[in-house]
Design a protein around this nucleic acid. Structure first.
Lengths: 230, 230
DNA sequence: TCAAAAGTGTTGAGTTTACACCCATGC
DNA sequence: GCATGGGTGTAAACTCAACACTTTTGA
């Protein structure tokens, strides 16, 4: 700060990884094994390497800290207005949010020997830095995303009953949806294909399984649509 | 890169400032007076100071380089995947986009003795770094913004004829709009208040002047709406 | 009186909402 | 046979899209 021409700001990346299981949205947190915040849960992330693209830094950290690879990753926001967000140093955080299907992967304590765990949204503890704020921002983002892009492919199993999608939307938006109207609307986009399989487990009448029409899905992600859910 | 624990990445901010004049959208560029890119036009911006919030860094650079203060500033994207986007050093750019009414301010060559000028979108030259890409991203952003938030307050005069708003939308979206339907829709939001003034200059019948209903405007910016323009 | 831009309504089509009962299965 | 969740249709309300002529002013 006193020396000329030497900027002393560190660049970190952090990720809010969402998974959907048992009708709740969860976020991935990892436990710090070292440092000032030892034993505290934090968002996965860390400093970017000098020769590393930002996005690769996120992917590396997710793999090192939790052993996962995500299939959807989007830049969220860069937090750097609070110059003391990290009390040790000036650090700005380029934050990402990611979507994964938790049944496809096992969390494993990574090479950094950190623990990793899914926390349902309403059980997220107080976190160090501005990590709670980052999570809050990412929830807003995913909610508003629903209005103009399809979501689900990255979070659900390959084949799923219609009610999974319906529950996913209800969970993210945190409100009730009319089952019949929702189904009509989704089907009218041509987003889903029926399979000839039926769900097995559980009470009640077995449900047809659907899968996403991948090319239609990609098209709608790119072009967007307007989809207000009442 | 070889030394441990010393990250060597610089953090810059850049701004895409939009102004609307004479039925075209323009972007502010400044001329570099020193350095490798001497005499080239670039986006206003520069390195962030160690004890400076990101947003303040943008505001400072805009004032130093062009003598302006903007009334709308939004973070756009952080460019840092191309590790050679600046050939001299690893620099990541936290980019912002801003909206201003150009009649309210005079550009002035700032304390850095740079020139500053408005460039209509279709006259923007090849720029160094990834500045053309940043501008392209910001145009996409402003276009998609129109579908869920009102825009105009920051770009138009305090009191303006309805046709100004109509032209603004047509310019940003780059397509024709049905005058009658557009007027009905905008008025139905309660976004505008009539004044009792009339436009003076120009051919044709004089037009009523409108102004934005500030509180309604802020409310719609916050809450958003769905507004598809055919 | 002509050119230029402002102002203004209606109708048909399409979309959205609200709403409730029967079906298939496991226990 | 009952509890559980799955599957389905319709009518009324509303919103959207398409469309053209009249008014006011200055030159």
């Amino acid at each position: 700060m006193t020396q000329r021409n030497i900027q002393n700001i560190k660049v970190a990346v952090d990720a809010v990884v969402f998974a959907y299981k048992e009708k709740t949205l969860s976020v991935l947190l990892v436990k710090q094994k070292f440092g000032v915040n030892k034993d505290q849960w934090v968002l996965p992330g860390g400093l970017v390497k000098d020769d590393e693209p930002l996005k690769e830094a996120v992917e590396r950290e997710l793999f090192e800290e939790a052993g996962i690879k995500v299939n959807y990753l989007e830049q969220l926001f860069t937090f750097g207005d609070d110059i003391n967000r990290d009390p040790r140093n000036r650090v700005i955080s380029v934050s990402y949010f990611a979507l994964v299907n938790p049944t496809k992967m096992k969390l494993k304590s990574g090479t950094d020997a950190k623990d990793a765990e899914w926390f349902p949204l309403d059980e997220i503890p107080q976190l160090p830095f501005d990590h709670n704020k980052i999570i809050h921002t990412s929830i807003k983002r995913i909610q508003s995303k629903l209005a103009y892009q399809p979501i689900g492919f990255e979070l659900l199993n390959k084949e799923f009953p219609f009610s999974d999608l319906e529950n996913l939307y209800q969970t993210i938006l945190n409100k009730e949806i009319d089952r019949r109207n929702f189904r009509k609307k989704i089907l009218s986009f041509g987003l889903l294909n029926e399979t000839d399989k039926m769900s097995q487990k559980g009470a009640g009448r077995p449900a047809k399984l659907f899968k996403f029409n991948q090319s239609k899905y990609n098209k709608l992600v790119k072009e967007g649509f307007l989809f207000e859910i009442k």
